[in-house]
Design a protein around this nucleic acid. Structure first.
Length: 423
RNA sequence: GUGAGCGUAGCUCAGCUGGUGGUAGCACCGGGUUGUGGCCUCGGCGGUCGUGGGUUCAAGUCCCAUCGCUCACCCCA
């Protein structure tokens, strides 16, 4: 094998695609029930879009973007996340005039140049939601409830953690208090935290070192520094989550990696994926649309990682057998093969999923193929059946087989067979 | 960017202190059933031991380099 896929880029093979389709269909169904509309946006954007939204000093922008200059000398970037593009499209196409609140979702690949590991790829897929134009706390709850519903319907469990990061009026004060707290004990902290204390102080709270966490038990908590507005909002979110009986934990130490978040943030976490436990995450971003030159509308969004969902689901027992085919047509001899081929096309035109063998294999082998391809029925057309104007229909599950009499006109065969298997 | 582990058949892997690459499992093809799948049984196909160099009478095994994969850190979906 000479040429292989790029590091962190994966083929999704046919055996796996069924799971992908199941997850995607279930998710789309829930989205539609919540009144969301799909929007499709480009995977390539001007680099500036991501720098301005995600934040200059974030890891994504600093070292993870697939950025290059195109043939015109423009700096372009393969999107590392979906929100920025959707907001750009919202502003550029004036979607805010369609109504005060826009509920959008998009599904597709994202790109980040990181070292791959379990549950982390350079090209990965997200299903993401953006609700623009409402600052109601109920919207926050609705979005989380929707994520919760999706997990429930695809049969996965995760824990929901929420936090509030405050707004432009209360966050600076908290940041200052936190920096003051860190300064006093900086020499007791791990190297990472020492570095973070200047680059992104909020991040220290997220440190995985037990030692650092021991220091942070007495650290100032964002929830104690929220302004009245943010406090009310957060309170409302918790109340409504409770009224919907959605279990959650408040994690005042949860900090998100993108600069645009304000107020409510949340993560859906599982412990079954090694260190990449977040299967979905999001939050409110009230200043983002204006920051990109649009109207001053608030927004909230979240994204779920397809690969992580697929991994979790494939770890579980796979339930009932799905019939990939309605019929596998087994033939014997040249004449039956030729007739069978035309019959197969007629059956397909009738809406049935049908396959047959073209390699001239034995009847036994053809039966094996029928089994392997998960056909519901085997339809046997041998020399004997051809002579008698009949066909044998075998239920591959029960093993029962019956002879079906066929009309003299070949053209009517397909309809008769279709009738028979739709019992 | 940092650290650790691993590269032997399409896949999962044995292969001890160097001494002829495994009747290994799964998958695939064929026979046992001259017209019938799953289970069983028998047979068959299948390999530049990641690549390049070195040590040695002899390297899958030891040494060096290189490429690739994996996991973890950072960070994130």
């Amino acid at each position: 094998m000479s040429i292989k896929a790029l590091k962190g880029f994966k083929d999704i093979l046919p055996d796996e695609v069924g799971l992908w389709q199941f997850i995607e269909q279930t998710t789309r169904d829930v989205f539609h029930r919540y009144g969301l509309e799909e929007i499709k946006v480009p995977t390539l954007e001007k680099t500036e879009l991501f720098v301005r939204t995600i934040g200059e000093s974030t890891d994504i922008v600093e070292k993870e973007m697939y950025t290059f200059t195109d043939r015109n000398g423009t700096s372009v970037t393969m999107r590392p996340e979906g929100t920025a593009s959707v907001i750009r499209a919202y502003i550029e196409n004036g979607l805010y005039v369609r109504g005060s609140v826009q509920r959008l979702y998009t599904i597709g690949p994202m790109f980040r140049h990181e070292r791959p590991q379990k549950g982390r790829l350079r090209q990965f897929h997200q299903m993401s939601v953006e609700v623009l134009g409402s600052n109601s706390a109920m919207i926050d709850t609705e979005v989380m409830a929707m994520a919760w519903q999706i997990l429930k319907e695809i049969g996965l469990q995760a824990s929901l953690e929420i936090n509030s990061l405050g707004c432009t009026s209360c966050r600076p004060a908290f940041k200052a208090a936190l920096q003051e707290f860190i300064k006093v004990r900086i020499s007791y902290l791990c190297e990472d935290c020492q570095r973070r204390s200047t680059t992104n102080p909020l991040r220290v709270l997220d440190c995985k070192s037990d030692h650092c966490q021991a220091e942070y038990v007495s650290a100032p908590s964002i929830t104690d520094h929220l302004c009245d507005g943010c406090c009310d909002h957060f309170e409302k979110v918790r109340q409504t989550l409770e009224s919907l009986k959605i279990p959650f934990d408040v994690n005042p130490k949860m900090v998100r990696g993108l600069d645009y978040y304000t107020q409510t943030t949340f993560e859906l976490i599982t412990t079954e994926l090694g260190s990449q436990g977040a299967i979905g995450a999001g939050g409110r971003y009230d200043g983002l649309v204006r920051q990109l030159g649009g109207p001053g509308v608030p927004g909230i969004g979240f994204a779920m990682g397809m690969e992580r969902l697929v991994m979790l689901l494939s770890q579980k027992e796979q339930g009932e057998i799905l019939h990939a085919l309605d019929l596998f047509l087994v033939t014997q001899g040249d004449k039956a093969y030729e007739k069978g081929f035309v019959l197969m096309q007629a059956l397909r035109a009738e809406g049935l999923r049908v396959m047959m063998d073209h390699e001239g294999r034995s009847m036994k082998n053809q039966m094996k193929q029928a089994d392997k391809q998960k056909a519901w029925f085997a339809l046997i057309l041998g020399t004997r059946e051809l002579e008698n104007h009949e066909v044998a229909l075998k239920d591959m599950h029960s093993g029962e087989q019956e002879l079906i009499e066929l009309p003299l006109t070949f053209e009517d065969w397909a309809a008769v067979i279709k009738d028979k298997i739709k019992i």
